[in-house]
Design a protein around this nucleic acid. Structure first.
Lengths: 191, 191
DNA sequence: AAACTTACTTGACAAAAGGCAAGAAAATAA
DNA sequence: TTATTTTCTTGCCTTTTGTCAAGTAAGTTT
């Protein structure tokens, strides 16, 4: 039996609850592995995964009006992975979530999450803290898109998620940063 | 005594709960008015307002590294207004929330919200639905910043928040859209 | 009303980024 | 290994946006 130590530590880093509570929450999660290039979620599915990513890299992407893949976000280890619209609103997903490298972690379903949310006060605080954390990250990404040059955005990614720059193809990174492949390639030349 | 009908209807539009529950939640909120150009939140304060905006327009802004005001977001009537980082994490705010026009609505404090969150299941669902709703809006804004031209972003604002275009000065809108004042002025010429 | 401040527009030029296409490099398949 | 596909780089030229500065318009204060 897996003791889910990394998940317990993650929970404790996000919210101030007892170690016992954190362990109990972690025990509600189920082990999952995803192979490189496999999908956690595909378009038109209703997402049923709230995933703690213990190791590996993932991305969430969708197709724009011209059919081009747009990478919306990257996920790195020691983070929660979910597609908020489909998971929480129980609607078909527009987006795909794909493993960039081999991934491992622990997941719960929407129903399991909801049961915990209403019956475990500690999970309530945890769940809210995760939403708040990711919401803030989204806002900061917004701010960076508006107030940073593309060079600065790339440098920022290099610092905050170096694994991404190392493992993800240029085109994923370019669409994430909001530039064309050519432009990113040129940016890279100047380190 | 105010029956807070608009707030009750707003709650019912966001989450599937009984009318009685919605009324009870609404009754926990307190009436508030804000004069044009006054502040709901200033930099370095710890936000204690979770506000349902019944009428009026607001904006949230901060100063960038050069000291320039950057309008991060606009709030219109029939929406919840809060600065998530300061309110939920109990830290000093980087941002200001200011009334663009005279505003009226209903607010609760962090402590009141937390009590409801842990003691009223219906409020739990409501609170989560609001976080989810605003998170999704933030993600869509992100997508628009990357995949729409500045002209399209302006047109979108015109359609989704025409009050803003009507009442907010050009410079607020320009920084929100991520363009300079000059560029927005030129965009406007082509309707 | 006059003075002053803030908001907006416009022109000239510079910088950043995009579109397209060719070719090199790397990864994958046969 | 060789062939094939995908990824990445680069050149040339166009479009978009920014910078700066001047000038007009509108709003506020005295």
């Amino acid at each position: 039996m897996n003791n889910k130590e990394s998940l317990v530590n993650f929970i404790l880093s996000v919210v101030e609850i007892s170690k016992d509570d954190a362990q109990e929450i972690a025990n509600s999660f189920h082990s999952i592995e995803i192979k490189e290039k496999d999908f956690l979620l595909k378009k038109n599915q209703i997402s049923d995964d709230y995933l703690y990513l213990e190791s590996g890299l993932m991305r969430i992407y969708l197709h724009d009006l011209e059919g081009e893949e747009i990478t919306i976000d990257f996920f790195t280890e020691n983070n929660i992975v979910f597609e908020i619209t489909s998971f929480f609103n129980r609607v078909r997903s527009e987006a795909y979530i794909q493993a960039i490298t081999k991934c491992a972690g622990f997941r719960i379903s929407y129903e399991e999450l909801n049961t915990l949310f209403h019956h475990k006060p500690a999970f309530r605080d945890f769940g809210r803290a995760i939403l708040v954390k990711e919401f803030i990250a989204s806002q900061q990404r917004n701010y960076g898109m508006i107030n940073r040059t593309s060079k600065e955005r790339y440098q920022n990614l290099l610092i905050t998620k170096p694994q991404i720059v190392k493992y993800a193809p240029l085109k994923y990174i370019a669409s994430y940063l909001g530039v064309t492949d050519s432009t990113l390639s040129r940016l890279r030349k100047n380190f």
